[in-house]
Design a protein around this nucleic acid. Structure first.
Lengths: 341, 341
DNA sequence: TTGTATGCGTTATCAG
DNA sequence: CTGATAACGCATACAA
């Protein structure tokens, strides 16, 4: 049972005593073709079960209507929602999405980006891995004039479209909220400071403390606590302090906040009375923990749509050198874990 | 700023005074080439920033080392884990994944499958949409001798590899567990019965009841309760009955179980004492609700890997007519929502 | 080992 | 409006 040859435009042409070019025109809905022959071609194409060979077509046209998406992990709510939003706009334009994971590895990221370049995709949408490194691979993308859109975690030096959350403001708002709720010693769980998003969140935290006349204490800033496990470990340490914090802002993720919640609950600490908690990302589970977790919504679906729109807009303006940053203002979602007033 | 021409093997050949074919051989690591020239070609290729045009190569070779994946929704834990597992094996083989969502729509499913066929992918991995319909599009895949692997939700009549959970046994085990915990009136939340997986789960439920001498009551079987919202609605109705159930098996999903939990908790019903709950899928959140939710793990990452292995095995045996079903035995995860003994 | 020639399936250009 | 032909970039059969 060999792979049977697929029918090509030549097969159709032969059957109808036409030239292949005419068949091509009919199929591509050209206007330089008689309506009747077009109808005839379409009909026989369907009968003969014809399906276009996208590789040949794309090769000839020198373009490939697909967009490559590179994210650290596909199974995080934030990223899968970005993709969902993005797909909503690309699908309607007849564009495909090729989705790749870097698994937070820089090496892997380089590999998948190269694969995408090889595929001649018309655009690449990326949120870089936590394990950062050279950005040569992204420069390559630009050099080949492939649309590059960075989102969330970006290489700042690179002149590309960027779709970002205003991490600083979100963080500032979260800490201000905690202060307003009467918390006095607010600890921060930090992410890897190589990533700007985590630096910005830290800056927002510091600024909010200062703005309200609170001291900024090194002992309350806990580095690299950006997974559930690490968040839990950090919480153990923090709660063992002589004067422990009365609130923890897990600026890295809701998963870290979950780690905090579990450890604190396990120790019999009452939330939000004795300890306030705030996470980041508005993962679905934050709504159903007990108590529910205060967090920050990043409007991920919206972000995805924005990215898609940017892509097509740029295509229209191709040749222009418009590079800019779209900032999406995240929103603080106040839930039980931080409401004691 | 026009898109600059990418360097081709001809550019390299010209520079080195070689034939394009030699360059091609060097690049494809052929053995019919002098080691020195190979090294030289590789070196200059790197210098000239050469990257292969995958479309041309694939067109010429008549194959495309990518696998298309079609799932209802990318942002469900089960599916994203399938993809993660699958990617683990395909990536190592140098294969790409093109991931598409059907959004549970049959029309959309047909569209994306056709796109994948056009791309000449070497395989398609699919879990069909809840909105079922004709399976012509999948027959097309087979007719073109593209590897087709179905998983989880499948079209049974189609002779393809199938990777399934043993829904019947899992359901049977869940209900048996509930009975052993002393629950007497166990309700079932059903999914759309067009899908075999939901039929099988219902059969497992019925069989377990019968095996333990319990009556099978129509009033306790609630149709189409397969989202959180619908699960909540169903729970309202069920708990209003003259003699309400003392346990609810949300055979459709953990989301439905979550709906049950919320409504019951809202009504002040104590879980697991007054009402036992069991879900399906082992979504991460089932561990952190209070009480935690008993559920069924489907070993989704394993399933993904299995699918990948099947794909490549079939490639090796191409020409053979081996079509079979791999059944993965899910595991009951007992948590607090059903433990009252 | 290397070069020449051809074709993969389309689309675009040019005549007719 | 239609047909012939070239070209997209690469890989292979064949010749040298």
């Amino acid at each position: 049972m060999k792979r049977q040859k697929r029918t090509t435009i030549y097969d159709i042409a032969e059957k109808l005593n036409l030239a292949a070019s005419s068949v091509s025109r009919a199929l591509s809905n050209s206007d330089k073709i008689n309506a009747e022959t077009k109808a005839l071609v379409l009909k026989t194409a369907a009968e003969m079960n014809y399906q276009q060979n996208a590789m040949a077509s794309n090769l000839r046209k020198g373009s490939n209507p697909t967009i490559g998406v590179v994210v650290p992990r596909i199974n995080q709510y934030f990223f899968s929602n970005i993709i969902a939003g993005l797909e909503e706009v690309t699908f309607n334009k007849g564009y495909n999405l090729v989705i790749c994971q870097s698994n937070e590895s820089h090496e892997r990221e380089v590999e998948v980006v190269n694969t995408l370049i090889n595929q001649n995709v018309s655009g690449i949408v990326i949120s870089i891995a936590a394990e950062t490194g050279s950005s040569d691979h992204l420069q390559q993308v630009l050099d080949r004039n492939i649309q590059l859109i960075q989102f969330d975690r970006v290489v700042e030096e690179l002149e590309t479209f960027k779709v970002l959350n205003d991490n600083y403001k979100a963080s500032y708002a979260a800490v201000t909220h905690l202060i307003e709720q009467g918390y006095r010693r607010i600890a921060l769980l930090e992410g890897p400071q190589e990533l700007h998003i985590f630096r910005e969140r830290k800056e927002g935290y510091i600024a909010a403390l200062k703005a309200h006349g609170f001291p900024v204490l090194e002992e309350l800033m806990y580095a690299n606590a950006w997974t559930q496990e690490l968040g839990a470990q950090a919480t153990y340490k923090l709660l063992e302090m002589a004067s422990p914090p009365d609130a923890i802002f897990a600026s890295t993720s809701d998963f870290a906040a979950l780690g905090v919640l579990e450890v604190a609950t396990g120790k019999g600490i009452r939330i939000p009375e004795a300890l306030g908690i705030c996470g980041y990302s508005n993962e679905p589970f934050t709504e159903i923990t007990s108590p529910s977790i205060t967090t920050i919504d990043q409007f991920s679906i919206e972000m995805g749509k924005t990215i898609g729109n940017l892509h097509f807009q740029e295509l229209v303006n191709s040749g222009m050198v418009i590079k800019k940053t779209v900032n999406i203002r995240p929103k603080l979602i106040v839930r039980k874990s931080s409401q004691r007033v």
